[in-house]
Amino acid sequence: MNSLEVKSVTKIIKNKKILNNISLEANDGQVVGLIGPNGSGKSTLFKVITNIYNPTIGKVFVDNIDLQKEYEKISSEIGFLIEEPSLYENLTGKENLMLISKLYNKFDSNIFEEVCNELEINKFLNVRFNKCSMGMKQKIGIAAAIIHNPKYIILDEPTNSLDAESIIKFKRLIKTLATRGKTIILSSHILSDVEEICDKIYILQNGEIIDCINNQENKHCIQYLIYTEKFNLRIDQIPIIEKDGQKVLIVKEEQLNDILNMLSRNNIRIFKIQEKRNTLQEKFIERIGYNECD
């Protein structure tokens, strides 16, 4: 059994199907990414996972506990930042963080100090939240999601408003948390970041999961583009496109020898062979299409 499991969740809001039969899984110590165009349903899915929304159909299980039925049992193990940081405007960052950890009855001065140091928020902890910049707010929002040391961390576009240095530190923090056995689910529009830190990536489009990528496998997956003269031969299971009057065969590493032999047997002239490593961006464009990416 997976430690976090979304089972066939559908969410309808104002007669509109926002999520359609979504299923996903996350194991202990796994960093799971959720990517998709704006309006694809990522935030809604996060809200269902954190019990902000009730699913119209389907269930969410966390440590085998039905989230909708027994949320209280597991709530202290869930920390989240969804959309913008929702904290008390008239309290300082420190007061907000103290309040959250006390409400969970899990205040630990060591964790508090560690989180503040990791995110470098010490210098503006005593500033009222409504006086903080967007970047400061975002960092405090991330701190608020992890201050009570939850096992499950849900972060919706956590790198929004962060500067480059903070993004690097944030990625390091996520990796550290994962090595401590935390399960992290996050979304981001910066695909290179998702690719760098996630073990598994779900692509969401129009409220449906259209692909699940094992990032480790994807990183090692090499494809070859074989540029040949035009031919009429039918080759099963090999994507072929036409480019500048040439045929381009997209071939996986294990298929390469067989295809080259076959082309040679049929006297098809090969112009060049190009190695292509599969990036998440390419995979994303391939699945979503250019129009959506615009």
């Binding site: 954190t50 209280e72 709530s75 202290s76 409400l103 969970y104």
Partner: peptide, 14 residues
């Protein structure tokens, strides 16, 4: 309105 209900109502005590 400020979405802090998420902080307050999603706590272990229900």
């Amino acid at each position: 309105e400020k979405k802090t209900a998420r902080i307050h109502f999603l706590k272990p005590y229900g």
